[in-house]
C-alpha cells in the first residue's frame, strides 16, 4: 500500500485571490478519498490543476513516483488520471456509444489509425460494450446525449472517464443536481465499481455528507484553499474546526 499520488506544497493564485494555499495531499494505492469543503474552498481548482488545465503558482504533483506538474491535459490523461466534471461536459450531438468509444479508442492507444474504420476495432468495441453494461446504459447505446435525462448524462460522465482506462479516477461531484433516488443509485454504482476493483483509486469531491460517509475511508477538508483536516471519517467528524465550518457556517446543505 504505497503512495500512488501526492501533492506537495501546491499554491494557486488568481491575481490577488489565493485559491489554494500550500496544499499537501496523499492518496495511497487502493484508496477512495473524499475532498470536502464549503463552496469556493478550492476543490474544483485542485482538480483543474491536477489535470493540467491551469498551471500551479508553486508546488509539485507526483503520480507513481513521476512528476506530472507541468504536463499538458492530454498527457496527464494518458498517464492514467481521468476525471469527470461537476458541470456535465459531453459530446452532445453524438450517441452514448460514440461518446464512450471516443474515450476508449484513445484510452487504449488505438486512435492514430487512418486505414481502419472506427467500428472495425474489435477490442475497442468490446470494451465499449463492457462499459455500457457496467454503467447500465446498454439500452441507451444509440441515443443522442442531448436527448438523455440529467441522471443518465451523469452516469455517462463516469462511463466516459472509465473509457480512458485510468489508474486514478477524479470524480467532481458526481451527484450534482440529482434527485434523492438518482443520488442513491449513483452512490451504489460507485461503491460497486470500487469494491469490484474496476477502478482501484478514486478521489471524489462531494457536498453530500451522506454520500461521502457511505463511500470514503478518508477525507480531506479544504477551507479557503487550506487543508484544515486530513484523516479517517471518524477523525474528521470529531474535529472541532470541521464541525465549526460545517455546522456554524450553515453551508452543509449547499449544492453547487
Amino acid at each position: 500500500m504505497g503512495v500512488i499520488f501526492n501533492i506537495e506544497g501546491l499554491t494557486k493564485k488568481f491575481g490577488g485571490l489565493v485559491a489554494l494555499d500550500n496544499v499537501n495531499f496523499e492518496l495511497n494505492e487502493g484508496e477512495l478519498k473524499a475532498v470536502i469543503g464549503p463552496n469556493g474552498a478550492g476543490k474544483t481548482t485542485l482538480f483543474n490543476i491536477i489535470t493540467g488545465i491551469y498551471p500551479p503558482t508553486s508546488g509539485k504533483i507526483y503520480f507513481m513516483n513521476e512528476e506530472i506538474t507541468n504536463l499538458k491535459p492530454y498527457e496527464i490523461c494518458r498517464k492514467g488520471i481521468a476525471r469527470t466534471y461537476q458541470i456535465t461536459s459531453l459530446f452532445q450531438n453524438l450517441t452514448v456509444q460514440e461518446n464512450i468509444r471516443l474515450a476508449v479508442q484513445v484510452g487504449y492507444g488505438k486512435h492514430i489509425n487512418f486505414f481502419k474504420k472506427a467500428l472495425e476495432l474489435k477490442e475497442v468495441i468490446n470494451k465499449v460494450e463492457e462499459i455500457l453494461e457496467l454503467m447500465d446504459l446498454e439500452d441507451k447505446a444509440n441515443v443522442a446525449v442531448s436527448n438523455m435525462s440529467h441522471g443518465d448524462q451523469r452516469l455517462l460522465e463516469v462511463a466516459i472517464a472509465l473509457g480512458s482506462n485510468p489508474k486514478i479516477l477524479l470524480l467532481d461531484e458526481p451527484t450534482a443536481g440529482m434527485s434523492i433516488k438518482e443520488t442513491k443509485d449513483m452512490t451504489n454504482k460507485l461503491k460497486e465499481l470500487f469494491s469490484t476493483g474496476k477502478i482501484k483509486n478514486i478521489i471524489i469531491i462531494e457536498h453530500d455528507m451522506e454520500v461521502v460517509t457511505e463511500l470514503a475511508e478518508k477525507i480531506c477538508v479544504l477551507n479557503y484553499g487550506k487543508v484544515i483536516k486530513d484523516g479517517t471519517v471518524e477523525e474528521v467528524k470529531n474535529d472541532p474546526l470541521v464541525q465549526e465550518i460545517y455546522l456554524k457556517g450553515g453551508r452543509q446543505d449547499a449544492k453547487g
Binding site: R78, L102, V106, H111, S164
Partner: peptide
Amino acid sequence: DRARALGYN
C-alpha cells in the same frame, strides 16, 4: 475541452 481531457492532442 473534454476531448483534451480524454487524452486527445
